[in-house]
Simulated scan of single mutants.
Amino acid sequence: MKQEIKSELTQQLIIDKAFNLFYKNGFKSTSIDKIMHATKLSKGAFYHHFKNKQDIGLAVISQRVQTRILNGMIKPLDSNQEPVELLKHVFTSKIKSFSMEEKQAGCPANNLINEIGDSELGYQLALRKIIDDWKQAIIKVIENGISTGSIKPEVDSAAVAIYLISAFEGIRGIRKLYQDDQILEEYLLGVGNYINQLK
């Protein structure tokens, strides 16, 4: 039992360090050697848990990146709050809560989508699952708003969902480019106005 716990802790250490390196330096710039150096483990320890770099990449996407979006953007949508106000809250409050490091580094999911999303089917499917789950959660909120009359019946819930995701992910990248919070203020104003028009 102790060996199983130690093995699990080692695996999580490798995933954590890999996530941090991918986020800071990019996926392609991060070698297995750099991950091992950060963990202070041997290469043998890495290959005991992961077959190759793709294997660790998929683990990082499913266990770290997906969890961040699940906890930060999807679970908060599961609320009894009025749908329009809920969407405004979720798509503005998270932006306001980011640390300076997160503002400068951008979104881990978006970084990976731009860097490796089209390079291999495994990465593409894993990253697409994150967006699909997020999209479905937004659609559910919008459909609820339509059914209760707080959102206009002609609103296309799938189109709104993908627009909101694109706006949120896009501003994370643009903030990296400008290194200026004024761009976030402009996003907050724009997204708030857009969501209000759903009423």
Rank of each mutant, 00 (worst) to 15 (best):
I131S: 07
L21T: 09
F22T: 06
V141N: 02
A105S: 13
P76D: 02
L77C: 05
I165Q: 02
P83H: 02
Q136A: 13
E143V: 00
S147Y: 02
I61T: 02
P83A: 01
E8H: 13
L86G: 04
S93Q: 11
S99C: 06
H89P: 02
S147D: 13
A45D: 08
S99N: 02
Y194Q: 04
A167L: 11
K51I: 07
I61M: 04
I151M: 08
G106K: 11
S119D: 10
L86Y: 10
D156P: 13
E101S: 05
G190M: 09
T10W: 03
I113Y: 01
T67K: 15
K40R: 15
K176P: 03
S150W: 05
E102M: 00
S31N: 05
E8F: 08
G72I: 00
G26R: 00
H49V: 04
S7Q: 13
Q124N: 14
T30Y: 01
F50H: 04
D133W: 06
L125N: 15
Q11G: 05
Y23Q: 00
V60L: 03
K34I: 03
G122N: 11
M36N: 12
K51A: 13
I56A: 00
D156W: 07
A126Y: 04
R172P: 01
V60T: 07
Q66D: 15
Y194S: 05
N114C: 08
R128T: 13
K103N: 06
L177P: 05
R172T: 08
K152R: 15
H48I: 09
V60E: 00
I32R: 01
G192P: 09
S62V: 01
K103S: 06
G117Q: 11
I139P: 05
I116M: 07
S99Y: 03
N80S: 12
A167H: 10
S93Y: 08
K34T: 13
K135H: 12
E82G: 10
K103Y: 04
G57M: 00
S93K: 14
N25T: 02
E120Q: 15
E101F: 00
K2V: 12
K176D: 00
V90R: 08
N71P: 11
D118A: 12
A137R: 12
R172E: 03
E115Q: 02
E4T: 10
S157M: 10
L13I: 04
